[in-house]
Design a protein around this nucleic acid. Structure first.
Lengths: 342, 342
DNA sequence: ATGACAAATGATTGCGCTATCATTTGTCTC
DNA sequence: GAGACAAATGATAGCGCAATCATTTGTCAT
């Protein structure tokens, strides 16, 4: 009477495979990691054993022994914003084909949470980190520098990057939008912003500066909230801005497209004609902006491309290539559409 | 002349901290993992050494020694769809407070890529997995079962879940939408769908069945594409459906809200009145649907809540709690709005 | 004070793998 | 066919930590 083969009672190790294939453990390791160092015969033989047993290497043991984790840590403020998931997609699309894994954390826009999360990431001994912006706590920056891990800060251009940096200047973008609206003939230009994270702040400051230079800035033309941005909040800020200015604004720069859509939809309900009564300009150029009626003027920023480039920078660095710029300006482009047509 | 203290030339280990604090390595380990097992005095002393040196434990060594990875593997089809990132947010919000890390992969809707990615995940010895749907390859399912890792399949209810399952029945949802539109008096109901992943297929089949039952199904009332869903594609499918049916449809069920928005925006451009000339119903109930004009009838599915529950199920299981259902139906709700008002 | 017991701390070992070096086998030249 | 060299394979050690068991210290009742 045959005894049924027990179903993998304990987890398989290299040695189990080695025994099954009649070779030494290290040969199995080579088949997995450096197959060209093993003869065709043994390679096939070992691979067969691996497949039959359903062996999956323990990455922890491997990482510990080789001090190579094959992990890239990524930190973004939130998963609820397409802006960051688009960048993320770029990162994933590059890293997926390189054997690196992504350990992703979200910080809910809080530097303190970010510090905690980055500690977590560092304990996984990542080979590199991609983090958002430059708003880390001092402690967090120290941790990063001490860890000697290559770091790319993304989304915005920083005065003092920790290491590598890729993004664009939000201040300048805000300045340019305001200038553009002025050139289009608008002169009582409002601003609505939500969340008010560092990048939104910068866009607002750039905007403010441009208006101040031509003496057209008015404090009450600005409506903001610390709440997370959304279409709903866009509608509310729009209404409150109109109320507090008695409706004299002739254009509004919305800190992002969600807010702009909210403002646009609300204006439709209020029977305010865009752009005839009021112009709207968004930021980020999400897909809806191109298709909504009237289509929404916005600022295109290459998010996906930024993710791609950030990941490529990381890979290059990990391959020992120290050529190339450490700072990349990905720029932006004002997409003029119907919502600001004069 | 003092010699400057060299900046952490090599990485710190438990032992370095132990030496600095004048205790044994295992005591440092205890301070980190079971602080209540260490006297107040030593705990403070050791913690000080940890902070001073900026010590971060090596998670690989820890995981190898304890066979606890504190990693949960998560697999979703794409990062470009708010449907999945909403679920993800729920998952993160639960797991962030439990010391578990999320290793996230995207499969680009391909079962083969999924298999590859799940291999990667398994090599990290995750303590549990949250994966999307039931469309895994046979090999992949075997790997998962062999691994003995708790698995939650999310997004849809499955006939034969691998382990735990949380979601709702897409077929029934499609059926219910069609029934609802029929009840509202629409009788020439079209369908547009993109990507055509298993869940969209199911919605379409349910839709089809409901119409067939009242003899109102017509093959050419369906327009689909394997392309990824988007607002742009929604507009195109809308136009092609109108063309191929000579505009006789009086309502369209769009497989998701992006498509529905595309259809709506296109209808505005074509001067087709929604809902007077044509009704539109979406699926997923994203934020824009509530605010667009006319507001869009859609099917609300608790994505964030689904993520929360999936993560909670995982945590419960990991805490040894085997009570509670293995399958959870999160349901859905048709949100009737202006785009289908009669 | 003494013994009994709990709490606090430490020494040793091994998790599963790869780096390193050692050995064997194969291949080529003359 | 002997020697020289490269290719293939193996043996050993150690990555950094926690499980396990051993020892020390502290606490209390008697």
């Amino acid at each position: 009477m045959k005894i049924a083969k027990p179903v993998s009672e304990k987890k398989l190790t290299l040695i189990d495979v080695a025994v099954a294939a009649g070779v030494s453990a290290i040969t199995v390791s080579r088949v997995i990691n450096q197959p060209d160092k093993v003869s065709e015969t043994l390679r096939v033989q070992v691979q067969k054993a691996i497949d039959t047993l359903g062996y999956i290497p323990n990455q922890y043991a491997s990482s510990l022994a080789s001090s190579k984790s094959k992990v890239i840590g990524v930190s973004i403020p939130t998963l609820s914003n397409t802006v960051f998931t688009d960048v993320l997609r770029g990162i994933y699309d590059v890293l997926n084909n390189t054997g690196y894994k992504v350990l992703l954390v979200d910080t809910h826009y809080s530097p303190l949470e970010e510090e905690k999360m980055i500690r977590t990431l560092l304990s996984q001994a990542p080979e590199a980190m991609i983090i958002t912006g430059g708003d880390q706590t001092r402690t967090c920056q120290n941790l990063l520098q001490k860890s000697r891990v290559p770091v790319v800060q993304i989304m915005e251009l920083l005065l003092e990057p920790l290491d590598m940096n890729i993004g664009f200047c939000h201040w300048q973008a805000g300045y340019d939008v305001a200038t553009h609206l002025l050139e289009e003939g608008y002169s009582r230009i409002g601003f609505i912003g939500a969340r008010m994270d560092p990048r939104v702040q910068q866009r607002m400051q750039g905007f403010k500066k441009a208006l101040e230079e031509v003496d057209k800035f008015q404090k009450n033309f600005i409506a903001t909230t610390p709440e997370p941005s959304s279409i709903a909040v866009g509608g509310e800020l729009f209404k409150s801005l109109l109320a507090s200015t008695n409706g004299v604004v002739d254009a509004i720069f919305c800190a992002n497209d969600d807010l702009a859509l909210g403002a646009l939809f609300e204006s439709q309900r209020m029977n305010i004609k865009v752009p005839d009564d009021l112009a709207l300009c968004g930021f980020n150029d999400i897909e809806a902006s191109r298709f909504v009626n009237p289509s929404l003027t916005s600022v295109q920023v290459g998010r996906y491309e930024m993710g791609i480039k950030a990941a490529e920078m990381v890979i290059k660095r990990l391959n020992g290539d120290t050529e190339g710029p450490k700072v990349v300006d990905t720029g932006y482009q004002i997409k003029k559409r119907e919502s600001t047509r004069n």
